[in-house]
Computed example of a mutant assay.
Amino acid sequence: MGFPSPAQDYVQRPLCLNQLFNVNGNTLLIETSSGWAVIDKSKRPDPGIVLLVNVDGYNQFARWMGDALITEEGEAIEGESLDGVTVIGPVIALISAVGRDDDCPVM
């Protein structure tokens, strides 16, 4: 029988999104064109934060500003137009993918 290796103190486990963001039944990981978005459906949306919303059957990101939702394109959804909007949840993290585009290599 030997003794435990001191190197065991420095062994690192691979990064796991489930552990980093406490992924559970209330958390969604959505793949986007630039990486991943982490959505927590259990958190209450606060004004000024980015939300994942469903508008006319399409998911998109929008910022809640006052009585309106401002989409990524700068369009405002307000008034009666909000009747067709379903808020899925606030975005708690955006994870950018690296190395997807060969025109912009990363070192």
Score class of each variant (00 low, 15 high):
1 M>I: 05
2 G>A: 09
4 P>R: 12
6 P>Q: 13
8 Q>F: 08
9 D>C: 09
10 Y>C: 05
12 Q>H: 11
14 P>V: 07
15 L>A: 14
16 C>W: 10
16 C>F: 09
17 L>W: 10
18 N>H: 14
18 N>G: 15
18 N>Y: 14
19 Q>K: 15
19 Q>W: 13
20 L>D: 08
20 L>Y: 11
20 L>A: 14
21 F>M: 08
22 N>Q: 12
22 N>E: 11
23 V>E: 02
24 N>S: 15
24 N>T: 10
25 G>V: 04
26 N>C: 10
27 T>Y: 01
27 T>L: 01
29 L>A: 14
29 L>W: 03
29 L>H: 03
30 I>P: 00
31 E>V: 11
31 E>S: 15
31 E>T: 13
32 T>A: 08
34 S>E: 14
34 S>D: 14
35 G>S: 10
35 G>E: 12
35 G>I: 09
36 W>G: 01
37 A>L: 13
37 A>C: 07
38 V>Q: 02
38 V>N: 01
40 D>T: 05
40 D>H: 11
40 D>V: 05
41 K>V: 05
41 K>E: 08
41 K>R: 15
41 K>M: 13
42 S>D: 10
42 S>E: 09
42 S>A: 15
43 K>G: 02
44 R>H: 10
44 R>S: 13
44 R>G: 07
44 R>F: 09
45 P>G: 06
45 P>K: 01
46 D>I: 06
46 D>K: 06
46 D>G: 03
47 P>T: 05
47 P>L: 05
48 G>E: 06
49 I>Q: 12
49 I>G: 02
51 L>P: 00
54 N>A: 04
55 V>Y: 09
55 V>C: 04
56 D>K: 04
57 G>Q: 01
58 Y>F: 08
58 Y>N: 04
58 Y>T: 06
58 Y>L: 05
60 Q>L: 13
60 Q>W: 00
61 F>G: 00
63 R>D: 00
65 M>Y: 06
66 G>V: 07
66 G>W: 04
68 A>P: 02
70 I>F: 04
70 I>W: 04
70 I>L: 13
72 E>V: 11
72 E>H: 06
72 E>K: 04
73 E>A: 15
75 E>V: 14
76 A>S: 15
77 I>N: 04
79 G>C: 15
79 G>Y: 14
80 E>P: 14
80 E>I: 14
81 S>E: 15
82 L>H: 12
83 D>A: 15
83 D>P: 03
83 D>E: 15
83 D>Q: 15
84 G>L: 07
85 V>R: 08
85 V>N: 07
87 V>P: 04
87 V>S: 03
89 G>E: 02
90 P>G: 06
91 V>L: 07
91 V>D: 00
92 I>D: 00
93 A>Q: 07
93 A>V: 01
94 L>E: 08
95 I>H: 10
95 I>T: 05
95 I>Q: 09
96 S>C: 02
96 S>M: 06
96 S>K: 11
98 V>T: 11
98 V>L: 12
99 G>V: 05
100 R>Q: 09
101 D>K: 01
102 D>K: 02
102 D>F: 03
102 D>V: 05
103 D>E: 05
103 D>L: 06
103 D>P: 00
104 C>V: 10
104 C>D: 11
105 P>T: 04
106 V>E: 12
106 V>M: 09
